[in-house]
Simulated scan of single mutants.
Amino acid sequence: MKPPIALPTSTVARNALVLIAVVAGGAALYWLRDILTPLAMAIFLMIMIDGVKRSIEDRTPVPGRWAGLAALVVVVVGFFASIAFIANGAFSFFTDASDISSRIGPRLDQIILDGSRLLGISAAPTASELISRLDAPQYLAMIARQAQGVVTGAIFVMIYLGFLLASQSGFRRKIIGMFPERTARGEALEVFQRVRGGVEGYLWVQTVTGAMICAAAWLLMRWVGLENAEFWTFVIFIVGFIPVLGGAVAGLAPPMFALVQFESYWPALILLGGLQAILFISGNFIQPRMQGDNQNIDPVVVLLSLALWGQLWGVVGMFLSTPLAVMAMAILAEFRGSRWMAILLSGDGEPYAEETEPAPPRPRRARVNPPQSGAG
C-alpha cells in the first residue's frame, strides 16, 4: 500500500493564514466602520484636492502654494454645497409631497386603480389605506437618524482631512525613512503614483460623464415639466458614482415621481425611455472610450466590490467601492506574489501590461526554449 501523499505544509499554512487575515480584516472593517468611513472619505477628498491642485498648476500660472489653497477651497466648498443642496432639495421635496390629500392622494389612488385593473384585481386599496399600514413615526425617526449621521460624518470627515493635510508635508520624509535605498524608494513611489493615477482617472471619467448625463437629463426633465428638476439632476450626478445601483436610481426615480405629478402616463414613459437611452449611450459608447486603462476591472469584480463594501460601510462603502477596487488592483499588480490576484480583478487579464515587461535579459541558451517565458 502506497503511503499517503504529503501535503506541502508551508503552502497550506500560508493559505490558511491569508484566509484568517482576510476574515479578521473584514470583521475589523465592519466593527470600526464609524471611525474608518470618515477617514476613507477624507483620503478620497485629499486625492481630489491633489488632483485639482496639479490641474490648476498645469493649466494656469498660479503658483503651487496658491494652487493648493484654491484646490482645497474648491473641494471643501463643493463637499458642503453638495450636502446642503441635497438636504434643501429633499426638505422642499417632502414639504411639497406632504399635501397628500389635495393632489398626491387622488393621483396615487388612480395609479393603484389602473394597476389593479391591469392585473385583474377587483378590490384595490386606496393610498390612504396603504399609508395607514406603515409605521410613519418609525420611518421619520430613521430619516432623522440618517440626517444626523450625515452631519456628524461630514464634521469628522473635515477633521480627518485637516489632519491629513497637516501631515502631508512629512510624507516625503516618511518614505525616505521607510525605504532608505533609492531603488526601493523609487519603486514605492511608483506604486503610489499608480494608485493615485487610477483613482484620479476614475474620478475624472465619472465627473465628466456624469456632467454630460446630467445636462441631457436636465433638458429632458425641463422639457417634460418635471418639478424639482434641478434636485433630481444633482441626485443623478451623485448616484452616478455608485455602480449598478446609481444607474437604476437615475433611470427610475424621476419617472416614478412623474407618475404622481402628471395626470397622464406619457410624461413618465417619455422620461423612462429618454433617461434609459441617455444612460445606455453613456455607458456603452462614451465611458468605454474615456476610461482607457483606468478602469480595467472585471464587471463581476465591480458588482462584488459594491456588495462587499456596501455591506461593510453602507452608502459610503457603495460610493467608494470602485475606487477601492482600482486601488487594490493597482497595488496587487506591482508585486510578483500577488499579481495573479490583480489579473483576476482586471477586465482583460493584463493589469498594466504595458509596464510589466520582464526587465532582466535572458541568457543566450534560453533561446532554445522560449515557451518557458509565457507565465508573465
Results as ranks from 00 to 15, higher is better:
residue 197 G to R: 15
residue 261 Q to G: 05
residue 235 V to M: 15
residue 243 P to K: 13
residue 202 Y to I: 02
residue 210 G to Q: 03
residue 255 P to C: 07
residue 218 W to K: 09
residue 197 G to D: 02
residue 251 G to I: 13
residue 249 V to K: 08
residue 226 L to K: 07
residue 207 T to S: 10
residue 234 F to K: 08
residue 247 G to H: 12
residue 202 Y to E: 01
residue 215 A to T: 14
residue 258 A to F: 09
residue 223 W to H: 04
residue 220 L to M: 03
residue 227 E to P: 14
residue 206 Q to P: 03
residue 201 G to W: 00
residue 220 L to V: 07
residue 194 R to I: 02
residue 217 A to K: 04
residue 256 M to G: 08
residue 264 S to N: 05
residue 209 T to P: 02
residue 199 V to K: 03
residue 251 G to W: 08
residue 224 V to P: 03
residue 216 A to L: 14
residue 244 V to W: 13
residue 220 L to T: 01
residue 254 P to Y: 05
residue 263 E to N: 07
residue 256 M to A: 13
residue 228 N to I: 00
residue 240 G to F: 03
residue 238 I to P: 14
residue 254 P to V: 07
residue 244 V to P: 00
residue 258 A to R: 13
residue 253 A to R: 05
residue 213 I to K: 10
residue 259 L to I: 11
residue 205 V to R: 08
residue 226 L to I: 08
residue 191 V to W: 00
residue 229 A to C: 07
residue 247 G to P: 04
residue 189 L to W: 05
residue 233 T to Q: 09
residue 206 Q to M: 14
residue 266 W to R: 01
residue 247 G to A: 12
residue 241 F to D: 04
residue 238 I to D: 04
residue 226 L to Q: 07
residue 259 L to Q: 06
residue 220 L to Y: 10
residue 228 N to H: 06
residue 205 V to H: 06
residue 239 V to T: 14
residue 193 Q to I: 00
residue 194 R to A: 06
residue 203 L to W: 12
residue 204 W to K: 14
residue 262 F to R: 08
residue 222 R to C: 11
residue 252 L to T: 13
residue 241 F to G: 02
residue 242 I to N: 06
residue 249 V to P: 01
residue 238 I to G: 10
residue 224 V to T: 02
residue 261 Q to S: 06
residue 257 F to P: 04
residue 260 V to S: 12
residue 269 L to I: 09
residue 200 E to V: 12
residue 230 E to W: 13
residue 230 E to M: 08
residue 243 P to R: 07
residue 226 L to Y: 03
residue 239 V to Y: 10
residue 253 A to N: 05
